[in-house]
Simulated scan of single mutants.
Amino acid sequence: MTTLLEVSGVSVSFDGFKAINNLSFQIGEAEMRAIIGPNGAGKTTFMDIVTGKTRPDEGHVIWGDRSVSLLKMSESQIARVGIGRKFQRPTVFEAQTVRENLAMALKNARGPFDVLFYRKSKSGADRIEALAEEIGLSNQLPRIAGTLSHGQKQWLEIGMLLAQEPRLLLIDEPAAGMTPEEREHTTQILVEAAKTRAVVVVEHDMEFVRRLNCKVTVLHEGAVLAEGSLDHVTQNQTVIDVYLGR
């Protein structure tokens, strides 16, 4: 499998506290990965570094088949090369319909003129229908986004990320606050997405992680503590001591 993202020897300190400590991590082109670990393990800082929000003190973050350094790029440039991030709280345009939210996110429709007249583009309309189908909101397209359930808003935001055609999706705690049915549907969306791109899911819900059925990276004190299947890492005594035993 071709490596899409490679993080090597990355460290970053905040006021003397090492949030990330000589971290190395890599993920392939079409791969699902779950990242788990206690609070303060460096999960959010890791995502901040990959998306350009935080600059590391040392190390390398290499992207794509041309092996370019993400550390030389701005946050907007990083988003444009194909890295999409979803925060824990859904951020959708509450006053707009589901259809309009997806239209605004489409990769080609950037100017206000494009957004205003997106219905006139057959390919844009088809893409919106396909995205709505992928996230399970086909029958909600005319609905105002603010009236959706918490789970549906999460799916819409994932759809808006997918509309930008990212090669890597970073998803923060998607299962939080969801019903069991919503969690099941979220699993399906992410597993499907990982067939064509890299998906990194930061999650605390072990049952949700098990359903993703993917390689798991355990972070602790800003470094990789263990890596492998969920069964493999959950049997690791150090992982039990620092995380699961709490």
Rank of each mutant, 00 (worst) to 15 (best):
residue 182 E to V: 06
residue 139 N to E: 11
residue 168 L to T: 04
residue 128 I to E: 08
residue 100 E to W: 08
residue 29 E to Q: 13
residue 133 E to N: 12
residue 171 I to A: 07
residue 120 K to R: 12
residue 181 E to Y: 14
residue 129 E to T: 15
residue 235 Q to F: 01
residue 137 L to F: 02
residue 71 L to R: 07
residue 104 M to T: 02
residue 196 T to Q: 13
residue 91 T to C: 00
residue 232 H to I: 02
residue 123 S to H: 10
residue 153 K to P: 04
residue 189 I to F: 07
residue 123 S to W: 08
residue 228 G to R: 06
residue 164 Q to G: 11
residue 79 A to Y: 05
residue 199 V to C: 12
residue 4 L to I: 05
residue 25 F to N: 04
residue 170 L to E: 01
residue 49 I to A: 01
residue 126 D to N: 14
residue 27 I to Y: 15
residue 35 I to Y: 03
residue 68 V to M: 09
residue 35 I to C: 05
residue 97 T to Q: 09
residue 51 T to S: 11
residue 58 E to Y: 07
residue 72 K to F: 06
residue 98 V to N: 03
residue 195 K to A: 11
residue 108 N to C: 06
residue 160 M to S: 05
residue 15 D to F: 14
residue 10 V to G: 03
residue 66 R to Q: 07
residue 219 L to P: 02
residue 215 K to S: 10
residue 125 A to V: 15
residue 127 R to W: 02
residue 246 R to W: 08
residue 232 H to C: 09
residue 219 L to R: 01
residue 61 V to P: 00
residue 147 T to H: 03
residue 41 A to N: 05
residue 214 C to S: 09
residue 96 Q to S: 10
residue 123 S to A: 15
residue 167 R to H: 03
residue 34 A to R: 08
residue 239 V to L: 10
residue 154 Q to I: 15
residue 99 R to E: 11
residue 153 K to D: 12
residue 50 V to T: 12
residue 169 L to D: 04
residue 76 S to M: 06
residue 113 F to A: 04
residue 186 T to R: 10
residue 68 V to Y: 01
residue 202 V to K: 00
residue 215 K to H: 10
residue 44 T to E: 02
residue 92 V to C: 02
residue 118 Y to P: 04
residue 50 V to C: 01
residue 228 G to Q: 08
residue 237 Q to K: 15
residue 96 Q to T: 04
residue 162 L to A: 06
residue 40 G to E: 05
residue 104 M to I: 06
residue 88 Q to L: 03
residue 202 V to L: 02
residue 171 I to K: 00
residue 39 N to G: 14
residue 229 S to K: 01
residue 181 E to G: 01
residue 134 E to D: 13
residue 118 Y to H: 14
residue 77 Q to I: 01
residue 141 L to N: 04
residue 151 G to Y: 13
residue 233 V to K: 06
residue 174 P to Q: 07
residue 74 S to R: 11
residue 161 L to R: 07
residue 221 E to T: 09
residue 240 I to M: 13
residue 11 S to G: 12
residue 188 Q to M: 08
residue 132 A to H: 04
residue 134 E to S: 15
residue 13 S to W: 10
residue 190 L to N: 08
residue 228 G to N: 10
residue 101 N to C: 06
residue 159 G to M: 05
residue 228 G to P: 08
residue 62 I to D: 00
residue 77 Q to D: 12
residue 72 K to C: 03
residue 155 W to I: 09
residue 47 M to T: 06
residue 78 I to P: 00
residue 165 E to P: 03
residue 46 F to S: 00
residue 185 H to T: 08
residue 232 H to K: 11
residue 45 T to Q: 00
residue 143 R to K: 14
residue 217 T to D: 03
residue 179 T to K: 10
residue 72 K to L: 09
residue 245 G to Y: 06
residue 152 Q to M: 15
residue 20 I to K: 03
residue 161 L to D: 05
residue 110 R to S: 14
residue 60 H to P: 03
residue 11 S to V: 05
residue 143 R to Y: 05
residue 158 I to L: 12
residue 6 E to D: 12
residue 132 A to R: 01
residue 163 A to P: 10
